[in-house]
Simulated scan of single mutants.
Amino acid sequence: MRIDAHHHLWDLTAVHYPWLMETGAVRFFGDPTPIQRNYLLPEFRNDAKGFSASVHIQVGAADPWAEAHWIQSVADQNPDWPLVQVAFCDLTAPDVTAQLDRLQTLASVRGVRQIIGRAPGEDQLSGTNDLLDNPRFLDGLKQLGDRGLSFDLQLLPELMVQTATVLAQAPATRVALCHAGSPHDRSEQGLQRWAQALHHLSALPQVTCKLSGLGMFDHNWSADSVRPIVDTCLTQFRPDRCMFGSNFPVDSLSSTYAVLVERHGALVPEQDHDLVFGDSARQFYRI
């Protein structure tokens, strides 16, 4: 079973995404205009030829529950495509227990994502970096582990050391590191700093790494340009703690799905394909 461990779907008539529909805004991942349209499971399945299951990741809906509920309906209507989801929950909210109780009524929910870091400029405006200093955030992480839910971690390399200190206090909570930790500085020095910081996360046994989103910070990326990133992740985490994710349709701004898979397939050693393109995700997300 080949599994895409990180993608998005959206029906703009069912769920509102303020960030997606903002006009004239160029984001850290590029100009969203080409993806300001419905992206539904039939189109994704057509893109993801050769795959047979996937993990939907929450993507900034105005009403996170509406998004999670809609994804559950998609999963229910397509039993031939195993679809599980990582939903949004504010782990610092006073009613976090009630929020998690409600999410766990949805059979497809496997975990939660609350973004800590997207890009340097945007983070200065959003203030999400401050989550790491909030004791409620740590309490919420621990509650995820108690419930058997995972946490999808999106952050910047500059936050890895502090984040590792927080995660070490919630060892029962399994963590999926999104987009290889977002190495946004692709200079030689930038990648060295990212790799050094990454050690703090890879040293934690509960953390698994996603080879995803590698085109967000460089739309002209190639297999050779991201080779140091993939090699470092495979070395630090080992293949059984790495999993492929397309980040579609966001990464359709920088490549086709087929090209994305081809490049990742060339970078991951053949003997590790079963793990990286399927088994690691199947075990982590209980598919």
Rank of each mutant, 00 (worst) to 15 (best):
D130W: 05
V59W: 04
R136G: 15
C89P: 01
Q236P: 04
P32M: 07
D80K: 09
G117V: 06
R147P: 00
A25W: 07
R286I: 11
N247M: 05
F88C: 04
D80R: 09
V230S: 05
V96S: 12
V109N: 08
V166L: 10
T256W: 03
E122F: 07
L83V: 08
H69L: 08
R27C: 01
R186D: 11
F284K: 06
P94I: 01
F29M: 02
G30Y: 01
W65V: 09
L234D: 05
V175E: 10
D185T: 05
F28T: 01
L260W: 10
D185A: 08
A66P: 08
L144R: 11
E67L: 03
C242N: 06
A5L: 08
D4M: 08
Y285K: 04
S187K: 03
L132T: 07
G181A: 10
H69G: 00
L253T: 01
R286E: 15
I3H: 03
P64T: 09
S126E: 14
Y285S: 06
S182W: 00
P171L: 07
F248H: 06
D224W: 03
R2W: 12
L149T: 04
P135M: 11
V84P: 01
A180M: 15
W65A: 12
K210V: 09
H6T: 07
E188G: 04
H184G: 00
H184V: 01
A66H: 10
L267C: 03
I287Y: 12
Q271N: 12
G121K: 09
D11S: 10
